[in-house]
Simulated scan of single mutants.
Amino acid sequence: MSKPRAVILLSGGLDSATVLAIARSQGFDCYALSFDYGQRHKAELDACRRIASDLGAVEHRVLSIGLGEFGGSALTDLDLAVPDKQEPGIPITYVPARNTVFLSLALGYAEVIGAWDIFIGVNAVDYSGYPDCRPAFIKAFEQMANVATKAAVEGEEQLHVRAPLMDLSKADIIRMGARLGVDYGLTVSCYQADEAGRACGICDSCRLRAEGFRAARIADPTPYQKKNTKS
């Protein structure tokens, strides 16, 4: 019998790489989907390609969409600085409606290839305060997906949006990924990595990543820029 198919949202960071490994370990044929959405750097897209190949994705697609044309985020507007410390509330690195758009396109992809599962690496423990990384959002999107698609309305199955990292700490995620054979040296998490994929060491994403490796007691393979090496 053929394996069930799943669409995996792959950003190039350690969370999405871990989710791809989880989906593979659960017996899914994995179809990875990444986005060139106008982000500050393309190093994460190079990371996506490396991860998809290393973890055996059946297919990996990169879609170009114009979220950067709207701006409104330090990740898509070069006039806005990426903060070097954690901010109260929802930070300027939040990209308006990003996960809603990403999941919508993943839903279309899933319907075409006959997949009933979409995996996303959102996390409500060690996360940056984004509203589209919360359980209520994932639940609401799944409910919408099951009334908005031909596959769900006419089919005998329900679509599932799976967020297996939702309740895990960053250290727990890293430990799980290490057990599943994830090479975190292939990943890029930094909000302002250079063209070679080297991390700044000071943004919120770098902080969470570094703290996660320390707490997991696993060597951090992250390459850092010389001018901003971590302390």
Rank of each mutant, 00 (worst) to 15 (best):
89 G>I: 01
89 G>F: 00
90 I>R: 10
90 I>D: 01
91 P>I: 00
91 P>M: 00
91 P>V: 00
92 I>K: 13
92 I>T: 14
94 Y>V: 01
95 V>I: 12
95 V>K: 09
96 P>H: 07
97 A>Y: 14
97 A>K: 14
97 A>D: 15
97 A>E: 06
98 R>T: 03
98 R>K: 13
99 N>A: 03
101 V>E: 04
101 V>F: 15
102 F>L: 12
102 F>M: 08
103 L>S: 06
103 L>A: 11
103 L>T: 13
104 S>I: 01
104 S>C: 06
104 S>T: 15
104 S>K: 06
104 S>L: 03
105 L>T: 12
106 A>T: 05
106 A>L: 07
107 L>H: 11
107 L>G: 12
107 L>N: 08
108 G>F: 10
108 G>A: 08
108 G>E: 07
109 Y>I: 08
109 Y>M: 09
109 Y>Q: 09
109 Y>K: 13
111 E>N: 14
111 E>F: 03
112 V>R: 14
113 I>M: 14
113 I>H: 12
113 I>Y: 07
114 G>A: 02
115 A>L: 04
115 A>K: 12
115 A>Q: 10
116 W>A: 10
116 W>M: 04
117 D>G: 04
119 F>K: 11
120 I>V: 15
120 I>A: 10
121 G>V: 06
122 V>I: 15
122 V>Q: 07
122 V>P: 13
122 V>C: 06
123 N>G: 04
124 A>F: 06
126 D>G: 08
126 D>I: 02
126 D>L: 02
127 Y>G: 04
128 S>T: 08
129 G>W: 00
129 G>I: 00
129 G>A: 03
130 Y>G: 03
130 Y>C: 02
131 P>I: 01
132 D>N: 08
132 D>I: 04
133 C>Y: 04
133 C>D: 13
133 C>T: 15
135 P>K: 03
